[in-house]
Design a binder for these strands. Structure first.
Length: 720
DNA sequence: GATTGCGATCTTTTT
DNA sequence: GATCGCAATC
């Protein structure tokens, strides 16, 4: 058998991991050391050499993207379909288990997955129903509490009453929340994991079945697992040693959302027969970048200890730029990107990494002003958009009338005359009788004299859902979506929305039909579930990766967190100031500070060739001028690895840099009240002017298109 | 039922 | 500073 393609591309440490004897293995894989490769080749090794059936492979990742990549790479390497392997996210696999064994998991067949914004809405409503003051009991905090409990495997009933008023109240909401979810057939993300764990724990026969099926279990990014995820892995590997874990304690940056690096240590206790293999050769960055990153991370106390090295040479020094303020910082970065591009670099090889999303704006403005294409990661994704969630809510109701979250969402969207009063009445009945809102609405119609108007509206709504279900029965999935879009009145609603937001929403609804058309139920459908239910779960579990412009040559802007796992030739780590990075909230707690430091380490190790660090002496934060000291992380980098940059012609004083030499008034091409023409929007009148030079913007009241702000450097306006 | 205005809030994010 | 959610208003 030819296994050269599995073994040959590996270095010694990688090969040791891939070919390790069949027992528990922990691979500590430094940044850029080829951890995905090891995982993929390990699976290939097991199949080709150990004779493990593909059917017996389980591989868990944290993101859908990582799962997809793993599938693709295994298929490429082995020329073998991964169809029969269980490869997915913890949540995706848990979902699959629950679908297969809904009964035993005590869930209705049509249960649906709530995303976090659904969850927050439900909690908000609950807080109101319980008569709690939202300012005293912030729903966000309650949501956080509930999820934290679930991540630790705790139900409301497991808690002992400590007499603490705060805790008692939190538990009361938790309990009410559990009841509502059970009644509605709704499952949040944390619940997927918790329930999947309980399912296996409480059904020994089922557990035995899966223990026998999954002969090899692989986990990516193990340092990010939380308590319940690890417990789930332990159940599946009970009495066996068939775990292959890959992770990096130095890249644990999700402690704040429940990830437990300690799982790495616990693993070593729980699987005494294990083997640890370190991957320390880095194939990504230059020697200087690695040395600097090593030095920074070495300041952390809590770590296993690892030192990256490369045989690729030292490369350039790390550049440090002290900006006058945040505008100057942006100016500098964009200037450097321009130079990079002029020298033949690609924009998409350049990334601007920041600690918090709010920092992206200056960079966006400067990039826009220089007409440099860019792409910002983060923000709303496709399936999270309001119009999409509305359409999905109709579909969910069609599948499951008891889905209260969806019921509430669309009972009056589009408005059909069912206001706060009617909804309040329905809620009251639901609460009294412990039934779903749908059932309560029917009860309300039967028992109480309502105003004829409200009654009509309510009957209309209930009948609409029933009718939609009937009409959809024989249709293809995408036709069902189309049907809902039209008959629900959503299309009509957005068509009449003023401004250009409505048009975008219509396009998104259209895109949803398209997504349904392309949806491939095959891959998930070992279970004989309705295609609609699968599509709806898919929408919740995979909120949709970013927009389609992925292949365009754009400068990449993202937070340090979202940069994990990526690499760029040219990296700017911006906003290196005390209070920002490390963030203020982390600076008084050593554990959190160390997590910030790991974040810094992650950021630095994204860079392949050139790394720029910048900070601003003054920065506007929340509208107020702040003067901060440079980040302590900068001092942790040996001085000999850093070169300080001064801008040449450009003086860092913003007044000199920003203002053109000529007066603003003379430059104005348009005046207030002037009539102008636009190729797309037609004729309009200038209402306001602001900014200057490339940034000049005008607010224009168009006869047809309404009031808009336009960048004059982009919009070609004609004076009329 | 839509529009306006006011105050509170303001890491990080995937599922 | 900007957004968002909620309440008062037309």
């Amino acid at each position: 058998m030819d296994i050269t393609n599995i073994i040959d591309p590996l270095n010694d440490a990688q090969r040791a991991a891939v070919t390790a004897p069949n027992r528990a293995v922990l691979v500590l894989a430094g940044a850029g050391s080829g951890k995905t490769r090891v995982l993929v080749h390990r699976i290939a090794w097991q199949i080709r050499v150990e004779g493990v059936s593909a059917h017996s492979i389980l591989a868990v990742t944290f993101t859908n993207k990582a799962a997809r990549e793993m599938r693709n790479r295994i298929e490429d390497l082995l020329d073998l379909s991964t169809q029969t392997m269980w490869i997915g996210t913890f949540h995706g696999l848990a979902h699959r288990l629950l679908r297969r064994h809904a009964k035993q998991a005590k869930l209705p067949d049509t249960f649906q997955v709530m995303d976090s914004s659904d969850q927050l809405r439900v909690i908000k409503r609950l807080v109101a129903a319980l008569g709690l003051d939202e300012t005293k009991w912030p729903p966000k905090q309650i949501q956080w509490f509930i999820n934290a409990q679930k991540d630790e495997g705790k139900r409301a009933r497991h808690q002992i009453d400590s007499g603490d008023l705060f805790q008692r109240q939190m538990l009361a909401v938790y309990k009410a929340y559990e009841e509502l979810c059970d009644r509605s057939g709704l499952v949040d993300f944390a619940e997927l994991l918790l329930r999947a764990h309980e399912l296996l724990r409480d059904n020994r026969d089922l557990l035995a079945f899966y223990q026998q099926r999954f002969l090899q279990i692989h986990v990516d990014e193990f340092q990010d697992t939380n308590t319940i995820q690890y417990a789930w892995l332990r159940l599946l590997t009970e009495g066996k040693d068939n775990l292959f874990l890959v992770g990096d304690d130095d890249q644990s940056i999700y402690g704040w959302r429940g990830a437990r690096v300690e799982n790495i240590f616990n693993f070593q206790k729980h699987y005494p027969n294990h083997q640890v293999i370190k991957l320390e050769q880095n194939y990504r960055s230059t020697g200087n970048i690695l040395n600097a990153a090593n030095k920074v991370i070495s300041k952390n106390e809590a770590r296993m200890g690892k030192e990256l090295w490369t045989d690729a040479g030292k490369g350039d020094l790390i550049s440090l730029y002290a900006a006058f303020n945040e505008l100057d910082e942006a100016y500098f970065v964009v200037d450097r990107i321009k130079a990079w591009v002029n020298e033949g670099g690609l924009r998409k090889d350049a990334a601007i990494l920041y600690r918090s999303n709010a920092q992206s704006r200056q960079f966006e403005e400067k990039l826009m002003a220089t007409a440099t294409p860019y792409r910002v990661y983060g923000g709303l994704r496709f399936f999270e958009r309001a119009e999409i969630k509305n359409a999905l809510a109709y579909l969910r109701l069609m599948s499951n009338r008891d889905d209260d979250a969806s019921f509430e969402r669309v009972i009056n969207t589009p408005t059909r005359g069912l206001g706060a009063k009617a909804i309040e009445d329905i809620r009251l009945i639901a609460k009294d009788q412990g039934i779903s809102l749908w059932a309560a609405a029917i009860a309300l119609l039967n028992q109480k004299a309502m105003s004829p108007r409200a009654k009509n509206a309510l009957v209309g709504f209930l009948e609409l859902i029933d009718r939609l279900e009937g009409l959809a029965a024989e249709l293809e999935l995408y036709e069902k979506v189309q049907l809902v879009n039209e008959q629900s009145g959503l299309i009509y609603l957005y068509k009449n929305e003023k401004g250009d937001r409505g048009e975008e929403k219509l396009e998104n609804l259209e895109e949803l039909v398209n997504a349904a058309r392309l949806f491939d139920a095959e891959q998930d459908n070992e279970e004989s579930l309705s295609e609609l239910d699968l599509f709806l779960s898919h929408a919740a579990l995979e909120a949709g990766d970013m927009q389609g412009d992925e292949f365009e040559d754009c400068v990449q802007l993202m937070t340090l967190h979202s940069a994990k796992g990526l690499e760029f030739k040219l990296v700017f780590l911006v906003g290196m100031e005390e209070g920002l990075f490390p963030s203020q909230q982390s600076s008084d707690d050593i554990a959190r500070l160390e997590e910030e430091r790991r974040l810094c380490y992650v950021g630095m190790t994204r860079a392949m060739q050139q790394l720029y660090l910048t900070y601003a002496e003054s920065r506007r934060i929340y509208g107020k001028e702040n003067y901060s000291r440079p980040s302590r992380f900068l001092r942790e980098i040996p001085a000999e690895l850093i070169q300080e940059v001064r801008m040449r012609a450009h003086v860092s004083r913003p007044l000199a840099a920003e203002k053109p030499t000529h007066s603003i008034k003379q430059e104005r091409r348009f005046n207030l009240g002037q009539r102008v023409g636009h190729a797309k929007f037609g004729e309009g009148v200038v209402l306001q002017l602001e900014g200057e030079g490339a940034q000049e913007r005008a607010q224009i009241n168009f006869k047809q298109a309404g009031v808009k702000w336009l960048m004059l450097s982009y919009a070609h306006l004609d004076a009329l």
